[in-house]
Amino acid sequence: MSLPLRLLHALVPTALAVAIVAPVLPPAYFGPIPGAVAKALLQISIKQTWGMYAPDPQRAQTYMELEALYDDGTTAMLAETADVEHGWGTTWAWRKTRMDIWKFYANFHPERRNDHRTWYLRSVCVREARTGHVPRKITMHHVKRRFTPPAKVAAGAPGLGAPDRRLITVAYCNTSPAREMIEADRRLHPELYPANPEVSEDVNPEVSPDG
């Protein structure tokens, strides 16, 4: 093989090495290059951000608690709330589903906007609509328990702190785009919806959200 051809061949591993290393380089020294490479790789779902247990491991665990309010004034706690009741013991692979990971992302940044949370709650609107009862609104609380530092546990304190519950956000199922998502889902999968005329009233576009 001639040298130019070998140089061309060498470009393949060189490009791969750049794609592996560049996204983790500090932008303070390398400017926009790490971000640009990371953005390009994200198109094909490759992420080179390896922040496992960084900058610190979690020192508290948070679960979401979802409460639905219906048009008739009744309320119900949704399935997610089971984590708040049962999520403080141990975990094994067979008890996890991939939806747990989405819930984990949806809990990020309680103080500010989180698109993952917004889309999660819209999805919950669709999921609940399939039961025949569309919530008017869904209230999300976070229930957080801190992990007690080892010195205190060694002195006899419990491993987990007391639950701290606080309001995070309210999502409305009869506003756009949740309403359109439900309508499209019902058109696409009528078999998933109970034949109940009350249901269609729940997604009436003229119903205005409260609050």
């Binding site: 979690q58 665990q61 141990t90 975990t91 094994w92 992990f147 987990l160």
Partner: peptide
């Protein structure tokens, strides 16, 4: 961390 611990042994 109860989110992914196998043993509850603080």
């Amino acid at each position: 961390n109860p989110y992914n611990r196998h043993f509850d042994a603080a």
